[in-house]
Write a protein that binds this DNA or RNA. Sequence first.
DNA 1: CTCGGTGCAAAGCTTTTGCATCCGC
DNA 2: GCGGATGCAAAAGCTTTGCACCGAG
Lengths: 164, 164
Amino acid sequence: MIICVYLQFTMTSNPKQYEAVKHIFTAYLENKKLRKTSERYTILEEIYSLTGHFDVESLYAHLKGKKYGVSRATVYNTLDLLVDCDLVSKHQFGKNLAQYEKSYGSRQHDHLICTDCNNVVEFCDPRIQNIQNTVEDLLRFNVTHHSLILYASCKKENCENKRI
Amino acid sequence: MIICVYLQFTMTSNPKQYEAVKHIFTAYLENKKLRKTSERYTILEEIYSLTGHFDVESLYAHLKGKKYGVSRATVYNTLDLLVDCDLVSKHQFGKNLAQYEKSYGSRQHDHLICTDCNNVVEFCDPRIQNIQNTVEDLLRFNVTHHSLILYASCKKENCENKRI
DNA sequence: CTCGGTGCAAAGCTTTTGCATCCGC
DNA sequence: GCGGATGCAAAAGCTTTGCACCGAG
């Protein structure tokens, strides 16, 4: 068996990427007959300028400083739309640890959370797909997505330099 | 490769099992120099008389009717202890969907959640252990436990008879 | 012009906390 | 009797909701 677990490197933001997701989002909004408001695009742009995971509060804080401020309600509403059209994925790492991340152009990956310092490390292992396929066949469900979280304690040197 | 995913059948409650976990809990409390209060044993007994998953509210509701009522604070406190000594496991299925289940005598298993009806199906696939081992080696973490949740839509007939 | 979307603040829900009382040791 | 544990209610933290106003189509 090919061992193929590796660290996931989060894509750096770039303008071309934002153009691409903007088109996807526009198509989604038109398809659902939703309005193309400036707030929605502001939020999308902000998310795609961030790297790594973020939570609602930090996104809201970033947006407050912009020309067009938005309210929390709008942030939550828009995040739901972005999750629905697969431009953003949501991870519930714990009761009060909901994290989002942009998902366009990102490789499928899972997360390891250090129980000592709450840092999150991304990794990718294609074998998870096998499990998913088997369950799908045996239990007769359509598996749409999954969440695999490994909880681990660091040997310190792994942890210090990473943000959640 | 041996296909070995299968449904997990929750153990039915039985008095002998409660005696066993009671001894474990007692040893744990003594070891940690914590008090053996009647509330703690009442909660443990109630949990081991339940089948399947439960949330704090439903456990609290069950306990309210007993001879010795308990408060929510005590339920939360005791659940933390039981999770710590591995007699109960906690699953965060969503922001407001924390579920617990007794874990003594249960096989390691994971969960599939139906996004149509919120039902939870348990399954077991030993291949998850391989992934865990590989990550452990490559990322140099001690993986203590994991959470694998598959999100799926049912083909209806699978879902109707199951409770969350 | 219409009605969906937004902003604000209030409400909701689960979980935690503070404090007086209780009881295991 | 001492100090940890409990019970109650208030507080906290994240998310949703209600309502008046705004603006995209």
